[in-house]
Every structure is written in structure tokens, then in C-alpha cells.
Amino acid sequence: MMSRTLRRIAPQLVTLAVLAALISVVFPGFLEISVSDGRLVGPVIDILKRGATVALLAIGMTLVIATRGIDLSVGATIAITGAVAAWSISNGLGLAGALSLAIAVGLVAGLWNGVLVAIIGIQPIVATLILMTAGRGVAQLITEGRILTFSHDGLAFLGSGDVLGIPVPALLWPVTGIAVALLMRRTALGLLIEAIGINRRASALAGINARLLLIAVYMTSGLCAALAGIITAADIRGADANNAGLWLELDAILAVVIGGNSLMGGRFSVAASLFGAMIIQTIDTGILLAGFPSEYNLVIKAALVVAILVLQSPRLASTWIYWGMRLRNRRAADAARIREAGE
């Protein structure tokens, strides 16, 4: 079991190692971690912390993509839930109130997407596009168009605090990821989600409640976006409806793809998507540390992403395996037929 998981995420681990080596060339102290004021400090820690939003989104996005869907609304959901958290904390609802309200709003956003996809039957890309475009407007209504700042140490702790020297966001995504991965694999959810992603009609005829599962999956994505929204707002002690989570849905999708998950749905690995998210953040942080002029940022990122996708290319690899197997099967079938003919 363990070795299978390891084999699944091996390409991502190799990619991370290669990236680390590359960045170490242009920035020698890349892998150094020191302790300052009881906190761990170093580029690697920054990556674990800064990659938290995309990693959280990638958890939900992995499940949505496994059902052959896509959730474009997560960036906007970050803006809404961040705004809700900031609004509630500055209106005296307290930490528990603000967190539960923000999470509830994230779940409602997921419910909306899920109902559009599973019950009304709108294509996922269209259904979630609605909230993607409208959501930021909702967030702006909450913040009244400005950056809604707050000063509440409890909430700020979630963005910039640390536990045992490790930044809270750097702890939040692995915990969420492990929880979701265990939930998927220790129950039958993973199998059922994969089944509806591969063949929804056959799954429904086998008695799987595809609608309910789809709604649950989009709600999970909304929940992950809410967590990302909370730490985004907590990080800067304010909710910026215009910019929070902007275009992050695309980074999340990219993380899932770099994680070797197929956009056509089916088999998925949450762990691989999380490593995908870390790969993206390693590139981002590496570019910042390298000190190139900012005009080159996107070009370098694009070149690296293309190189990674081509080189590790899980689809390419599986295509080779598939054709290899087809060839073997065919030879076996031919041999069988020749035997039959001979008899």
C-alpha cells in the first residue's frame, strides 16, 4: 500500500528535488533552515507557508476533477469567505463565530455549484463560471469596495502565527490533506467518486447516488476554499475583495495536473496534487529569490511548468504503458486465435 502511494507520487518528488537543486545553484541558501525567535525560518518554510492557499484549493479541486468536473469559483470563494471572516471579526462575532460563518459560506458556495452541476445538469465549467464572475462582486459588497482590515490576534494567528515553530498555514494544509485523503481511502468515498468520474451512467445504474456525491464533492471544494480564504485574510489582517484569490483557481487546477491527475476524471491522488501545489510554490519562491527582473517571472514559470509537464508527463507514460499492454494483449489474442484455428 505504502509503496504504491510512493510510486504514484515519485515523479512529483523527483521534480521537487530537481527544482531544489536548480534553485540552490542561483540561490545557495535555499535549503537552509534556521531558528529565529523560536520560529523556523528559511525559504523552504516560506514555500510550505505560501503554498498553503493553492494546496488547500488543490485538495478540493482534486476531488472535483476526479468526478470529471472543474471548479472555477474557488478564487472568488476565497474573496467571499475572507471578506465574511474579516467582516464578522470586526463586527464582534468572535473568532469561533467568524470561522464558522466563513466556513458555512464556503459550504453554501459549494452547495450552489453542486446543485447547478448535479441537479440542474449544467456543465461544471459553466456552472462554476457563474460564481467565479459574480462571487467577487458579492465580496465587494461585503467589504464595501475597500480593504476591510481588522486587528484580532486570534484570527491573525491563523495567517502568521506558528505552532512549535512552524507557521500555522504550513500545518493547516497537510492536516486537511491527510484528513481528506484518509476519508477517501479509509471509507468507500474514493472508489465511489472515481466510479462516477469514469462513468456516471454506469455508476448510477450500479446504485451509486451520483447526485449526492457530486454535491458533497463541490461542497468539499467550497470548504477548502473557505479555509484558504480565512488564512489569506488572516495573513494580511484584512480582506481585499479585488485581489484575494485572484486567478488561484488556475493555479489549483495546474497543481492537480502537475500531480498527474487526469482532467478527464477517474483515478486521483490528493497527495500528488499537494506535491503539485508545492512544486508551483517552489517555482514562485525560487523566482523571487533568484532576483530576476519581474518581467521574466511569468516566462520562467511557464517554461518550467511546460518542462515539468512534458518530462514527468504521467499521461505520456501511461499512454506508453497502455499501448504496450494493448500490444501484448493483441499478441496473446492472436496466438490464442492461431491455436484455435489450428485445432
Partner: peptide, 11 residues
């Protein structure tokens, strides 16, 4: 933006 200002300053 604030978020990116913070992230880049960290680097």
C-alpha cells in the same frame, strides 16, 4: 496587492 507585497517582502 497586500498579499503579494507580503510574499515578495518575505523573499
Amino acid at each position: 496587492t497586500r498579499t503579494e507585497g507580503k510574499e515578495v517582502m518575505e523573499s
